[in-house]
């Protein structure tokens, strides 16, 4: 039964990684940049929900909504203020800017909320479910997180395959110049992508803090980096890839923790990533990168 318990734990953690990775992968696919500040938007989402519930006494659902709205606005602002002026600049300049934005957000959080960790009250009110005469425990957080990840992935898949904006995003992702020649507004499309990514980061932040209830200005860094790894692992730019990468990463992490070593679990996660990339450089579900002439 402990294997099953760990599997559920892995699925649940993996679902959080998947939600974050979906944001990474959308932004990478369409804006062609690694938004290293994505992890810190998670942290801001956590604080927003925390403040809404703790200081304003609002119910969890409203806390989540506030976190999503604030993060969406933040994501759009970051894009337009920090990244848009660098459109067409070398990717190294953009990367350094993203790292700068990440530090900026962490330090802003430090200034506002101090480095003292806050203890986050879970937004999930469900009691843990006991199965198999108490040998298998499924927490409410796990159930909600897994369902959220599946719903989000399905919604994103429908959005990108069925809606006009979603198709335009795929067109921009493939060929920005040609998309402009269709009359697609590139800035608006990229802005929209950041909005979606940041809203997902807010949800991920709230779910992550519900499962690991200490919140500090650096809370977003590690899940951010791991979710980035998950996105690369699954094939950056691919929506099912981000989902698969996130889930696998969570499972590998929890199993390494349980059966090998808690100290080594992160090392094992990255070792698996390196092996996968050596065998399949585009990641598990990544598309072959076309040579541009």
């Amino acid at each position: 039964m402990s294997v099953l318990n760990n599997l559920i734990g892995g699925l649940s953690l993996g679902s959080v990684y998947a939600i974050i990775a979906l944001g990474y992968t959308m932004v990478y696919g369409i804006a062609k940049m690694l938004n290293f500040a994505h992890g810190d938007v998670i942290m801001i989402g956590g604080y927003m929900c925390f403040c809404a519930m703790q200081y304003l006494g609002l119910p969890p659902v409203v806390g989540i909504l506030i976190a999503m709205v604030v993060c969406t606005v933040l994501g759009v602002l970051i894009e337009s203020l920090a990244y848009r002026p660098l459109r067409g600049a070398p990717s190294l300049a953009v990367l350094i800017t993203a790292i700068g934005v990440s530090y900026y957000l962490q330090n802003a959080a430090l200034l506002i909320w101090s480095s003292n960790p806050k203890s986050f009250t879970s937004v999930v009110a469900l009691e843990p479910i006991q199965l198999a005469a108490g040998r298998l425990t499924v927490t409410g957080e796990a159930i909600v997180t897994i369902i959220a990840a599946v719903v989000i992935m399905t919604a994103l898949t429908i959005f990108t395959s069925r809606t006009k904006m979603g198709k335009a995003m795929r067109a921009v992702s493939e060929d920005r110049g040609a998309a402009q020649l269709m009359g697609i507004n590139i800035n608006r499309t990229i802005s929209m992508t950041f909005a979606i990514g940041a809203a997902l980061a807010a949800i991920a932040g709230v779910l992550y803090c519900s499962a690991y209830p200490t919140l500090s200005p650096t809370t977003g860094s590690l899940p951010g980096i791991k979710a980035f790894t998950a996105a690369v692992f699954g094939g950056i730019g691919s929506i099912p890839g981000a989902m698969l990468g996130g889930i696998l990463l969570g499972i590998i992490e929890i199993f390494s923790n349980a059966y090998i070593s808690t100290q080594l679990s992160d090392a094992i996660v990255f070792a698996v990533l390196i092996i996968v990339l050596l065998i399949k450089p585009t990641g598990l579900l990544g598309k072959k990168i076309r040579e541009k002439v």
Binding site: K167, A168, R170, A171, E174, D175, A179, G183
Partner: peptide, 26 residues
């Protein structure tokens, strides 16, 4: 004013129909 660029630059990962829809974006 529409431009059919050099090398065609159709969206290779979109379907034929989706390519046409992109042409009608506006």
């Amino acid at each position: 004013l529409v431009h059919v660029p050099e090398g065609r630059r159709i969206f290779l990962q979109l379907t034929v129909e989706e390519n046409l829809e992109m042409g009608a974006f506006l």
